[in-house]
Amino acid sequence: MDYLSVIEMLNACHGPSGDERQIATTLKRLAEPYADTCHIDTLGNLIVHKKGPGPKVMFAAHMDSIGLIVTHIHKEGYLSFGKLGGVHPESILHTPFRFKNGVCGVVALRPGVSLKDMTIQDLYLDIGAKNEAHARRLVQVGDTAVSRMPSFTTETKLVSPYLDNRISCAAMLDALSHIRAYTNDLYFVFTVQEELGLRGSKPAAYSIDPDYGIAVDVTVGETWDDPQKGSSILGDGAAVKIMDSSVICHPDVIKLLETLAMESKIPFQRDVIVSGGTDAGSIHVAREGVRTGGISIPCRYLHSPVEMVDLSDVTATVRLMTAFAQKKL
């Protein structure tokens, strides 16, 4: 799969938390050739089903992104905004954003505020409007905006906004296309509103009632300034989740994933993070409980417009998902 092209296609859609319809429609079109059924549920999750005789296996990757939402339009034409998900002011200052209707703007800092003291409330969006009336012809309070930064590759790395979690969506599509032995009853779910508290995966897991759940997401990759933020290293393979702040993974699933990786010679590592959650947090407590694990792609600079992954880790994740999907459980 050409991951750069897929990421560019997905990021061209408007898909912040709560407004994922465009990206769900695009993913549905890409998944339909490999599925028995595809449907979008009430909350907006895309559920792709490939029928099989064995236990129900639910793979989940969230398709929503963090973003901005307009809270006030000033008389000068500037826009105050709130955040959708974990938006950090230092990561978005002086970067371009795009509204659903195509209007673009840049994030700027209110005069007189120092960089070290700034908060989200000190930032504003400048869309080039002459005044409030002009701005209101372009956008409204409640409109949402997403990053307009470009995507690119550098040797083995892919850099882009919203690799959290569009790269896992691409990996799920790739895995779906590689599955040949339909031993299990497979559900590939592209979830909504994960960035706002794992909201979409909860009703999806309740509806599917899976026997096994695998959350596919990015995880904190090492950085030179603080290697202790996460256990995973870019380029060292798929990260088998042990725990995050939302879940302690089922030991049977951890063991199975690691055994499959060793048997298939798939590079893997262990994923332990003490902050940040995944859809596994909602899935594992659905109904009477679900045997739940996770496969993570190490990522640097999370929740910034320049997230970075190693493509070899993406490939390893696809191989491990495919092996799990085809394993007789």
Rank of each mutant, 00 (worst) to 15 (best):
N184S: 12
I283P: 07
I23D: 02
A61P: 07
S201D: 03
E90Y: 10
S232H: 11
P210I: 09
H303L: 03
G221M: 07
T26S: 01
S91K: 14
S312W: 10
D252W: 09
N131H: 11
H303C: 05
D225N: 13
T219V: 11
D236I: 00
T95G: 08
R148M: 13
E90K: 15
V247C: 13
T153C: 15
G277Q: 12
A12Q: 12
L4M: 04
P16G: 03
R98G: 01
M118I: 12
E195A: 07
E90P: 00
F152R: 12
A24K: 08
F81K: 00
I297E: 04
S80R: 15
G293H: 08
D117E: 14
Y182L: 14
L196R: 10
R270S: 05
K265V: 03
H250Q: 08
E288N: 15
R270D: 02
D174K: 05
L138M: 14
R199Y: 04
A60W: 04
A170S: 13
Y187H: 12
M149F: 06
L173F: 08
D41V: 10
S296N: 14
I297A: 05
T191A: 02
R270M: 09
S312C: 13
S17L: 03
P111C: 06
M118C: 10
G54C: 09
M172K: 05
A215C: 07
E8V: 03
P111A: 10
R29M: 03
P227Y: 09
H94W: 05
K241F: 11
I266G: 02
R180I: 13
F97S: 00
K50P: 01
V314L: 11
G77K: 10
Q269N: 11
S264I: 00
R110K: 15
A175Y: 09
A61S: 14
Y162L: 00
D211H: 14
T26V: 15
L125F: 07
K50A: 09
T37S: 13
I73S: 04
I242E: 01
R29Y: 05
R137A: 11
Q269Y: 10
R270H: 13
A205N: 06
D2Y: 12
G276K: 13
V290H: 03
L234S: 11
D217T: 11
V113Y: 01
T119A: 06
H134M: 04
D143M: 06
L30N: 06
I242H: 10
M308N: 03
P89Y: 02
A205I: 02
I283V: 15
A108D: 11
S147L: 14
R300A: 11
Y187F: 15
H303F: 09
S168E: 02
A171W: 03
S177G: 07
I92H: 04
S151K: 09
G277M: 10
S275A: 14
T42C: 00
A325L: 09
M308R: 06
S296F: 04
V314Y: 13
A129M: 07
M9S: 14
V70C: 04
F81N: 00
P203Y: 01
Q326D: 08
L176P: 02
S312A: 13
V113C: 07
H88T: 10
E307Y: 11
Q193I: 06
